[in-house]
Structures are given as structure tokens and as C-alpha cells.
Deep mutational scan, measured.
Amino acid sequence: MGFKLLSKLLVYLTASIMAIASPLAFSVDSSGEYPTVSEIPVGEVRLYQIADGVWSHIATQSFDGAVYPSNGLIVRDGDELLLIDTAWGAKNTAALLAEIEKQIGLPVTRAVSTHFHDDRVGGVDVLRAAGVATYASPSTRRLAEVEGNEIPTHSLEGLSSSGDAVRFGPVELFYPGAAHSTDNLIVYVPSASVLYGGCAIYELSRTSAGNVADADLAEWPTSIERIQQHYPEAQFVIPGHGLPGGLDLLKHTTNVVKAHTNRSVVE
């Protein structure tokens, strides 16, 4: 069995187990497998329904001669939608809004960016022009300005110390501490036991640490421990890039980060 097929099978099995364990909360999309990078042309966006009122959005972007996937989250909030992270750029984010209108038909009224990198804030200006209120932590807003990236308009308070959590509509926002970046936030959907790890969490097929220019490698494993301790009931975990899975993604990420750190020390 090929690795790609095995990865998709694991996603399907995880979703099936969740649907059985929580039949009222989960209505997993039966329309197909989780979209992969090879299936999404740059400039297009796919939506994948995880649970009743919960979707991931998947886009792709060219970077350094390669094409990478990027995940975000959409959560229903009454007759409105909360968006977590842009679709990595203005063109993708405009396509995301169009796809949401086509498939869901509810307005996106608020959006949260989970850290300051372009795959999370690139497209904020498109959201703002569409009347979406954009939010991020003060740290993310400051770092985005320093980096020359787009800056969300509103500040999220109460997320300055490791372990801080605040309720934001249908989700809980959690600051686990520094990891992929010093400002990275985690998003949890309690009604569906869905954990969105953003770039602080890796997919299972990833074996290298990737972009760690703004990471705190020493603190990252401790931050992941905080996530595990705060959300032990999480059933569906979405990484910032690639295929979702279960809580095993947290341990896998820790292993990859520690291996990278150990290699760096040896070198």
C-alpha cells in the first residue's frame, strides 16, 4: 500500500471513529477524501466538511520552486461564519470567499490569524475590503508590521502568557507558548472536538522541520505538551499544512522538532 493511500485511509478511519463516538456532533463529509496538494491548482481553494458547521479550507501556493498546501478553518456561528487564517495570499483568499459563498452561503463576518507569517495573514486586506472584521493577538499584529505583512485590524486580548485561553464565538483560542513562531495560536472547536494546530503542528508525513527561522526550538516541545494537557479530548487535529489526523500529530511534531534540534547540535 502506497504512503499517500495509507495517509488518506488514516484520515478516513479517524473521521469514521469520530462519527461513531459522537453521532450528534459529527456529520463528516462523505463526498470524498481530504484534498491534497496535487489536486488543488494554485489560485483555487477546496472546502472539506469535518463536522456539522465545521470545515477546513485548503489552498496551495508556490514557494521556492515548489507547491505547498495550506489549511485553515471555518466555523459556523449562528447565521454567520468565523474564518481562521487566510488562504495564503490575496488571490487565494478572494477564491476562498467565493467558494464559501458557493458552498455554504453564509457571510464571513470575523477572521482570526493564528500567527504573523504570510500563509496566515496574506489576504487580510481582501477580507477587510469584503467587510470582514480581522483579528490577531497584539504580538501577531506587531510582528506582521515588522515583517511588512498585512496586519489584522483588531487585537485579541488575554493571550499574552503561555497557557492563556479565551473564548471567541464558537471557538476557544489558546496560546501554548512559542513553537513554530513566538505568537502562534491554537484554535479548538469544543462542539466538535476539532483542534486546529496551525503551523505549530505537523502532518504525519512530514519528517523535516522546514521553516524554523522564527521558531523557538527549545520551547516548542513544552508548548505541545500544554496543548495535549489542555485538549486531551480532541479527536480531529488539523495541521497548518497537509493531512489531518488525531492527537498523534502532536507527538510526531515533537519528535521531528527534537530530531532537528539534535542534528543542529551535532553539526
Results as ranks from 00 to 15, higher is better:
Phe116Pro: 01
Pro190Leu: 08
Ala111Gln: 07
Arg141Trp: 03
Val171Glu: 04
Gly89Ala: 02
Glu150Tyr: 04
Pro176His: 04
Thr93Trp: 00
His230Ile: 08
Gly246Val: 03
Glu172Ala: 03
Pro170Val: 06
Ala51Leu: 05
Glu39Thr: 13
Leu204Tyr: 09
Asp248Gln: 12
Ser223Met: 01
Phe63Gln: 10
Glu147Ser: 13
Asp52His: 10
Thr207Asn: 14
Thr261Ile: 12
Ala129Ser: 11
Ile100Lys: 00
Ile84Leu: 10
Asp183Met: 01
Thr222Cys: 06
Ala98Gln: 13
Met18Glu: 13
His252Thr: 02
Val42Ala: 15
Ala178Ile: 06
Ser56Tyr: 13
Arg141Asn: 07
Ala15Pro: 14
Asn262Gln: 11
Ala111Trp: 03
Glu219His: 09
Val75Ala: 07
Gly53Ala: 09
Ala66Met: 15
Arg46Cys: 06
Leu82Arg: 03
Leu195Thr: 01
Ala111Met: 10
Glu39Asp: 13
Ile50Val: 12
Gly43Ile: 02
Arg263Phe: 12
Ser139Pro: 09
Ile40Cys: 05
Asp79Pro: 09
Thr254Trp: 14
Leu156Pro: 06
Leu10Ile: 15
Gly197His: 01
Val166His: 07
Ile20Glu: 15
Arg206Tyr: 07
Gly72Phe: 05
Ala94Asn: 13
Ala213Asp: 13
Ala200Glu: 02
Arg46Gln: 09
Phe26His: 11
Thr134Ala: 04
Ala95Met: 13
Ala90His: 10
Val124Phe: 05
Thr140Gly: 03
Val124Leu: 09
Val212Asn: 08
Ser155Thr: 14
Glu172Trp: 02
His241Asp: 04
Val75Lys: 02
Gly245Glu: 02
Tyr68Leu: 12
Arg263Met: 14
Leu82Cys: 03
Gly198Met: 04
Phe174Tyr: 10
Ala25Ile: 13
Leu9His: 11
Val37Ala: 15
Arg142Val: 13
Ile58Gly: 03
Pro107Gly: 08
Thr93Lys: 01
Val121His: 04
Glu267Val: 05
Leu127Ser: 00
Val124His: 05
Val265Leu: 12
Lys8Pro: 01
Phe236Asp: 06
Val124Trp: 03
Val194Trp: 01
Asp29Phe: 09
Leu5Glu: 14
Val108Trp: 03
Ala59Gln: 15
Gly65Tyr: 07
Ala94Lys: 14
Asp85Trp: 00
Lys258Trp: 09
Glu157Asp: 14
Gly89Val: 03
Asp118Lys: 06
Ala130Asp: 06
His230Ser: 12
Glu33Cys: 07
Glu157His: 11
Pro239Ser: 03
Thr140Leu: 03
Ser113Ile: 05
Leu96Arg: 00
Pro41Arg: 12
Ser38Cys: 07
His57Asp: 03
Ala90Val: 08
Lys4Gln: 07
Glu172Phe: 03
Leu73Tyr: 00
Lys91Arg: 15
Ala51Thr: 12
Ser31Val: 11
Gly89Trp: 02
Ser137Ala: 07
Gly123Thr: 03
Glu233Cys: 05
His252Phe: 01
Ser16Gln: 15
Ser191Leu: 08
Thr109Val: 13
His180Gln: 06
Thr60Glu: 05
Asp248Ile: 07
Ala213Trp: 07
Ala98Gly: 14
Ala129Ile: 08
Ile104Ala: 00
Leu204Val: 10
Pro35Gln: 08
Trp220Thr: 00
Asp119Tyr: 04
Thr134Cys: 03
Tyr135Cys: 05
Asp216Leu: 06
Pro176Thr: 03
Arg128Gly: 11
Leu249Ser: 06
Tyr48Glu: 09
Ser30Pro: 11
Ile100Phe: 05
Ala178Ser: 10
Ala209Ser: 09
Ser191Gln: 12
Val28Gln: 09
Val11Tyr: 08
Ile20Ser: 09
Leu185Pro: 03
Ala179His: 05
Pro23Asn: 10
Glu233Ile: 09
Pro176Met: 01
Val265Lys: 13
Glu145His: 13
Asp29Tyr: 09
Asn255Lys: 13
Phe174Asp: 01
Ala213Phe: 09
